[in-house]
Design a protein around this nucleic acid. Structure first.
Lengths: 330, 330
DNA sequence: AATAATTGCTAAAACGATTTAGTCAAAATG
DNA sequence: CATTTTGACTAAATCGTTTTAGCAATTATT
């Protein structure tokens, strides 16, 4: 039951393993191997159930046909859907994907990148966390192919796939204003990241263009750790300014979920009066009997573009970094 | 900028690479290498930034410290959460995970298992699809370590982690009956799989124990492909028996989501009169202003147990297959 | 003092591919 | 006819580990 190697086949046929290797890699023509010989090899290989040993291949060539996916949390629907899209598109290029969750902690990013590099992944698709600048710069220095998704660092040259956070956010707020909103609270998350800053800027600009004054007390910034607690505090503070607030804008879906849950628990009445809107959504949004509106991320497209980019980097070693911005759906 | 190898270190220190290898693998004591030498090696290795080449390691030892995860769809919350739990527990044992989605199509299972085997994964965690019996038997024959999760085939000896589908289903229906339900429709999915059959049996038994006659016309079986269409047809047929139906029981969360969406679109009034319950749930269930009750799967636990099992199989080669059944939360 | 055991270390094979640089004969070219 | 080209194939190095078998020198045992 032992595995069949190139050598086994070559011995069986009385030829060199070089020849067998060439045939198995489809390089028969190029290496002027006679058609009958090529056929004989192919036949014997199938007959003996030959399967190339990947480890040997990787050791020799350095290519593993595997890409690493590093995200905040695979169990989060956004990343889960992204992972699926990446899987599908990677498969088309004959790549598999190995994933790791960071929980937005840069120490985990570092560890994960380290081990995936060791395991010879050909490239990385990364949704970076706050503080990942150093490790990303390191990747640049080592010329490791990688693509950033969802977030990026403007000060670092990278290949990037993001959505148009500013415009998306602007449109959401603008629509709310058109529908009569006047006092719009904004709950942001991981505000240090550019994409979140852009969402904030979109919010500000929309207010400005509508002639609504920006009020700092209506904006709250939260972080990943202890989100449950933080959102409670933030909501309480906002409620103390109530009832003038007519709309709450959450900068992502997770925040929105927690926020709405909190209101359901504590102030159902307020919830029935206020409008809720969020940048991101869940698939169940239309089930809710709440006036929630949202912008939807083109997740499939993000995954596709990210894979196309990384494969291009791996296989063609193109050098000029691209930033690809996709529109969000309203 | 080339990678540092064992040999580089050995040359630098004027010792054999055997020695360096022993030290790097923590076998210094066992191999009677002097403490000072061990220390010297460790120091030099760190200084030179040595990192073992995994491909070489895998080629030599056959171990990749990677497990393969094969599920229906990583973007489905159930599997996404499972993937996260598996990732966390795998990490504790120094394993990474590489995933693939089958879309419940056995042809995809076969392909995925094939390529993951080629890539030297040490073991597989699989949520099998209908028709996977053949490939699973093959794994048994080849003595490839694997663990089935969520579903299994009673006729095949396997290591398995499942929930108590019968009891869970029984409890859900029983509770509904206690709350006054008399005519309970059941929408099942992938009914050929044992776990789904068990959910059905739990439903039947609960009816029986309550003295409610079983009615075949209240039960609908759906399949993965074309679920959207199928659920519409099924719901329409059920509605035609309405309004005597007072409860609809969905055998999983996806079904429930689609079913409720359908009702919201077409017959909101009916939805307000009927009780909805499902075996599985989504994290947003308590947001809904609908009388939906459900049983919750212990996903974290499933992942943990599955990883423990597979690691045990890989490292200790234990032989007697275990079926581990976990209770569902109500 | 002769033998046995221990200590500290190493040479070389093996894992299974890919690839460079040939070889040798037959055919083409001038 | 001498030389070049082509066609068909191969030997051997290489990728970077792990591991078996064994070698000297030192220490312990009787």
């Amino acid at each position: 039951m032992k595995k069949v190697s190139l050598e086994d086949i070559s011995k069986e046929l009385g030829v060199s393993k070089t020849l067998v290797s060439f045939v198995m890699n489809g390089r028969a023509k190029e290496q002027r191997i006679s058609d009958e010989m090529a056929e004989k090899v192919l036949k014997k290989a199938k007959e003996m159930g030959y399967e190339a040993n990947y480890a040997a291949k990787v050791l020799r060539t350095g290519k593993s046909d595997t890409i690493g996916l590093i995200i905040a949390d695979i169990s989060n629907t956004f990343f889960a859907k992204l992972a699926r899209s990446i899987e599908n598109n990677a498969q088309k290029h004959k790549y598999n994907v190995i994933y790791g969750s960071t929980d937005e902690d840069t120490r985990n990013s570092v560890k994960l990148i380290e081990v995936l590099k060791k395991k010879n992944v050909d490239g990385l698709i990364i949704s970076p966390s706050i503080g990942d600048q150093k490790i990303i710069k390191q990747l640049n220095k080592e010329k490791i192919p990688y693509v950033l998704v969802d977030r990026y660092f403007p000060e670092i040259q990278s290949d990037v796939v993001v959505v148009n956070n500013f415009q998306g956010s602007y449109d959401i707020i603008n629509r709310a204003i058109e529908q009569g909103s006047k006092k719009i609270a904004f709950l942001n998350f991981n505000a240090e990241l550019v994409n979140m800053q852009d969402r904030f800027k979109g919010y500000q600009q929309a207010l400005k263009d509508a002639g609504i004054p920006y009020e700092e007390k209506l904006v709250k910034n939260l972080n990943f750790s202890n989100m449950d607690k933080e959102i409670e505090t933030a909501m309480k503070e906002l409620l103390s300014i109530s009832p003038t607030i007519d709309t709450i804008y959450f900068s992502n879906n997770q925040l929105m979920l927690l926020g709405v849950k909190y209101l359901l628990r504590t102030d159902k009445e307020f919830l029935s009066k206020v409008k809720v809107t969020s940048f991101d959504c869940y698939e169940f949004m239309d089930l809710l009997d709440l006036p929630i509106s949202y912008g939807e991320q083109p997740i499939k497209e993000i995954g596709k573009v990210a894979v196309d980019l990384i494969v291009d980097k791996i296989e063609n070693k193109h050098t000029t970094p691209k930033i690809i911005t996709l529109p969000i759906k309203n």
